[in-house]
C-alpha cells in the first residue's frame, strides 16, 4: 500500500502499488456525509454514557471519557481512513469496487452478469448531491454490490453506460 494525495483537494488515498489501472476515488464530500452519519451513530453511546455519568455511580469520567473518545474516533478519524480506501473503476466489461478500512474487500462484477441497477439517495447524501449506485446480480453471495459517494450525475451516467452495455450484449 502507498499513500497518494488527491490532485484536487489533497485528501489522502491509499492504493496498491501494482494496480494495473488506477482506481477512481469517491467524491470528497462523501467524507462529510460519513462524518454526519457516524456522528448520529455515535450519539447513542454518548447519551447512554451521559445518563450513567449523571447518576454518579462511580468515579467521574469512567463512562463519558471512553464514549467521547470512541465518538471522536468515529467522527474525526474513521471517515478519512475509509474514504482513502474506497475506489472504483468502470472498465469496458466489468465494474470493480474496492473498499474496507478494517475489512478489505475488492469486488469485481462483470457487466454481463448485472440483472438490474439502482441509483438511490438518502437524506444526508441528497443534501450533498451525492448518490449510491447499486448493481444486482443473480448470485447469492454479493447479490447486490453498492458504491456510495458518487456525484448524482456521475451515478446516473454510470447506470446509463452499464445499461447500454447490457442492451448491446443481449443483441
Amino acid at each position: 500500500m502507498q499513500t497518494v494525495l488527491h490532485p484536487q483537494h489533497g485528501l489522502r488515498i491509499y492504493r496498491h502499488m501494482d494496480e494495473p489501472e488506477p482506481l477512481m476515488p469517491l467524491d470528497p464530500e462523501y467524507v462529510g456525509v460519513m462524518r454526519i452519519s457516524n456522528a448520529i451513530f455515535a450519539a447513542f453511546p454518548l447519551i447512554g454514557a451521559l445518563v450513567l455519568e449523571l447518576s454518579q455511580l462511580t468515579v467521574p469520567g469512567l463512562f463519558i471519557i471512553p464514549a467521547a473518545l470512541l465518538a471522536a474516533w468515529l467522527v474525526f478519524v474513521v471517515p478519512g481512513r475509509r474514504y482513502a480506501r474506497w475506489g472504483y473503476q468502470l472498465g469496458s466489461d466489468r465494474l470493480r469496487i474496492v473498499r474496507g478500512y478494517l475489512f478489505y474487500s475488492d469486488t469485481v462484477v462483470p457487466l454481463g452478469r448485472i440483472q438490474h441497477i439502482d441509483v438511490d439517495q438518502g437524506p444526508i447524501m441528497r443534501s450533498h448531491d451525492l448518490a449510491t449506485l447499486t448493481v444486482h446480480t443473480a448470485g447469492n453471495h454479493n447479490s447486490s454490490v453498492a458504491l456510495p459517494g458518487l456525484r448524482h450525475d456521475d451515478a446516473i451516467a454510470m447506470r446509463e453506460s452499464i445499461r447500454d452495455y447490457i442492451k448491446a450484449a443481449q443483441g
Binding site: F103, Y104, S105, R113, A138, G139, N142, V145
Partner: peptide, 23 residues
Amino acid sequence: QSVEIAQGPLARASGLAALRFGV
C-alpha cells in the same frame, strides 16, 4: 456472477486472502 477478494485484519497482516465467487 461476481468475484470478491476479501481480507480481515489478521489475514491482511499475514498477507493471505479469501477469494469468493458469487453463484
